[in-house]
Amino acid sequence: MCNLYLGAIFFMSFFKKILASFENSFITANSIIQQAVLFPGKDINIKINIHGKHKKQIISNINLKLYCHYFEKKHTQKDNFFYKKHFIKISRSHTLSNWNLAFPFNIKSGEIRDFNISMNVPWNTPITINNTKVWLETKIHTSMSINSISNKELLTVRPDALMDQIFTVLEEQGLRIRHVKCETIEGFISPFIQKFEFVPTMGPYHGYWREIEIITHRSNNFLKLWFEINRNQTKNSKETLGKLLSIGKLKYQLEISTETCIQEVRNIVLNYINSTLWRKK
């Protein structure tokens, strides 16, 4: 069974459509998303419906972008009294996927035009847990409008089968997700990473670990996981996990082939945790 904690039972809602309508004085547009839930590595199917209003229009461009947000941690000036560095968090957005109409077209008053669009949801699209946000922005440019008309729709992204199995294994060991966030990273394949923070509430690691933090990165052939174990009640590191990864200070990592049978993933993850991470300093 899929992981109930992450809400991965979506069969009944998977076939629902998400509909958004937006307009200006000259056209009305509907953006219809065929899936209620998205999965990394799969496609999102969208239908754009445009209805002409009072007079003939030229639609110069239709643009769709799949976005996510992440946080960048920046130093501010030192405090003159305590001589401590202060940090601020800046929210950034990242384009995951982009689609543009290849040609302009005319639409008459009362005419309806439909466009069926397929966009890929990249493998490392963040899973929408806690405050993590993924959204689709649709923009339509017309000849009679100085500004484009646009719409933003928040989307739900859930883990693929491989990631879901890993989360299930961790939960079976008494680990619960406490916090998930996307943060900036330098010198990596993407400008951000998604960090999952687990705490042991029961099971073999309760009383030994304060928390375990995990970063994941998926390619076509492998899923990589980096681990950081905090055993004390306070964190000693002042660096973010993304910073530690970018400078090579995360020494615990596991690589799983994407061809691995789902049934084997449980043993691979447990063997790694118990042989490499368990009570290691």
Rank of each mutant, 00 (worst) to 15 (best):
M1D: 06
N3P: 06
Y5D: 06
Y5S: 11
Y5K: 13
G7P: 06
F10L: 10
F11T: 07
S13R: 11
I18D: 01
I18S: 02
A20W: 03
S25H: 12
I27A: 15
N30H: 14
Q34F: 14
V37C: 12
V37S: 12
L38Y: 04
G41Q: 09
G41R: 04
D43I: 07
K47D: 02
I48R: 05
I50Q: 13
G52H: 08
G52I: 00
H54S: 08
K56Y: 09
I58V: 14
N61Y: 08
L64D: 03
K65I: 06
H69V: 13
H69W: 02
H69L: 10
Y70H: 08
F71R: 04
K73Q: 11
K74N: 09
T76N: 15
Q77P: 05
D79W: 02
F87W: 10
K89S: 07
K89L: 10
K89E: 07
S91V: 09
L96S: 02
L96G: 01
S97C: 11
S97W: 01
W99Q: 03
P104L: 11
F105L: 12
K108H: 08
G110Q: 04
R113M: 08
R113D: 06
N116Y: 12
M119E: 04
W123D: 05
K133W: 00
K133I: 09
K133R: 08
W135M: 11
W135N: 06
E137G: 07
T138H: 13
T138Y: 11
S143T: 10
M144T: 09
S145F: 01
N147W: 06
N147H: 06
S148V: 00
L154M: 11
T156A: 13
V157Y: 00
R158E: 00
D160S: 07
D160K: 01
F167N: 02
F167K: 00
I177K: 13
V180D: 09
T184P: 08
Q194C: 07
K195V: 07
V199G: 03
P200W: 06
M202F: 12
M202T: 02
P204E: 03
H206C: 15
G207E: 03
W209A: 08
E211G: 10
E211K: 14
I212M: 09
I215H: 03
I215P: 13
H217D: 02
S219E: 01
N220G: 05
N221S: 12
F222G: 07
K224P: 03
F227E: 04
T234K: 15
S237A: 13
T240L: 15
L241Y: 05
K243H: 14
L245A: 08
S246V: 00
I247N: 14
I247A: 13
Q253L: 10
L254C: 14
S257K: 08
S257G: 03
T258R: 15
Q263K: 08
E264N: 05
R266W: 05
N267A: 14
I268K: 14
Y272G: 05
Y272P: 08
I273S: 04
N274A: 10
S275K: 14
L277C: 07
W278A: 09
R279E: 01
K280Y: 03
